[in-house]
Nucleic acid binder design. Structure first.
Lengths: 222, 222
DNA sequence: TTAGAGGTACCTCTAAAGAGGTATGTGGTT
DNA sequence: AACCACATACCTCTTTAGAGGTACCTCTAA
């Protein structure tokens, strides 16, 4: 039997999107010091980034915010709208509150500042590749204030859901598989899948498990 | 009565509200090592706290969350309703998201965890007295998730589950697919499947979606 | 020492989930 | 009349989940 831990932990694939070639080079070199991480593609603008994301389906996308033409937030939205489910970590110099909040609401899985220590960056990227949300510590206060001032609202927006979709969310949260949902609603399983597909996209979620967890936590499950 | 120790007339005045006398004593001793800070009053419950706040008008109120009768959040609301404008910093053991969010929404100016280092506490209190919002770094991720509206709770656990199985339940509840769980734990996807299989059987559940819902409702995710 | 529990790995096989796409009918709007 | 959102159905294709089983290693309790 093959010894454990040689095949199973294949390195996480990363796409860099940043308009500065030098910075990309630096980050790439840094990342390649870590055997758990691998840069599989680079892009210097939104369009290239989107194309690369679709082609390589990287585990992780490191996205610069400050780019000419189409900025990082817009790029992020484009990615999500195009169905890219990779983890996206914003990597920028901006500690501007609007940027941070906008990025998180647009579905960013992390927000790291470019002035962080290299080792910290590597460890953050590893965390991110494993699904953890990573945020530079320096942003703590800012986030707390944003929460206080602005928010009681939803990132995933329930109001964009059709009645049918809400109904299906409840049934997913009840743990029902598509087949049973179909029976319960007297429609075909295929149709249920269509609704699930649509609502995953609207909510920027990646699986029915995430839907169920979200719904339960929001109290939408009954 | 502003008990004036003439030399620190400029020191920030502090009111402690905590139902544990010993903890108050400890904190008070610590604070008095710092000439910029001065404890002017103590209270062991909400009513005493409110009275003291009105009487002394402290610059800063250190408020425990976990108190009998009237908890910290309620106390905070009472203070604000009564027109107390002192900075209020919550000081507690709870890193529960609901508590943090509730405290901030109720107008807390800070949220510090009791397990922090004494020197850190002093510097945080100084910052707070100067009008800065202070939040324990440990809460960063949590706040970011709250902004995105992905709640996570925490709590006890039940049952015949092995530690490994509980660990995997948490990851399932975070919405991670088996492949990512495997990477995170540095084991193979196959092994993850084995654990999932076992825990499904033990819990008499039929799918990971049911596991996730159950875990969230029981509060044993995160 | 043996037995059992827990963790890991590997195998096969089936079912379920999810991403694409096209298409039809209905009820409202413009 | 043309358009649009919604729900429905059906299609293909790939990936993920889950059930079954065997096996090996370590640690602890009988």
């Amino acid at each position: 039997m093959t010894d454990h831990n040689e095949e199973n932990a294949s390195a996480a694939s990363i796409l860099l999107i940043d308009d500065h070639p030098l910075l990309r080079k630096g980050v790439k070199q840094l990342i390649e010091l870590d055997s758990e991480l691998r840069v599989v593609a680079e892009a210097s603008n939104a369009h290239e980034g989107l194309a690369a994301a679709l082609e390589f389906e990287p585990d992780l996308i490191l996205l610069d915010l400050n780019m000419p033409e189409i900025n990082g937030i817009e790029t992020l939205k484009m990615l999500r709208d195009a169905g890219v489910t990779s983890r996206v970590v914003v990597f920028t110099v901006s500690d501007n509150e609007e940027d941070v909040v906008a990025a998180l609401k647009a579905g960013a899985d992390g927000y790291l500042l470019k002035d962080m220590e290299p080792e910290e960056l590597l460890s953050s990227l590893n965390q991110a590749a494993l699904g953890k949300m990573v945020i530079s510590d320096r942003l703590t206060t800012l986030l707390a204030e944003a929460l206080q001032n602005k928010r009681t609202k939803k990132g995933p927006d329930i109001s964009s859901l059709t009645p049918r979709e809400k109904q299906i969310i409840k049934l997913i949260s009840a743990g029902l598989p598509n087949k049973l949902i179909a029976r319960k609603l007297s429609i075909t399983e295929g149709t249920v899948k269509v609704h699930v597909k649509h609502l995953l996209k609207k909510l920027h979620l990646r699986s029915r498990v995430e839907v169920a967890v979200w719904a339960v936590q929001e109290g939408l499950d009954k």
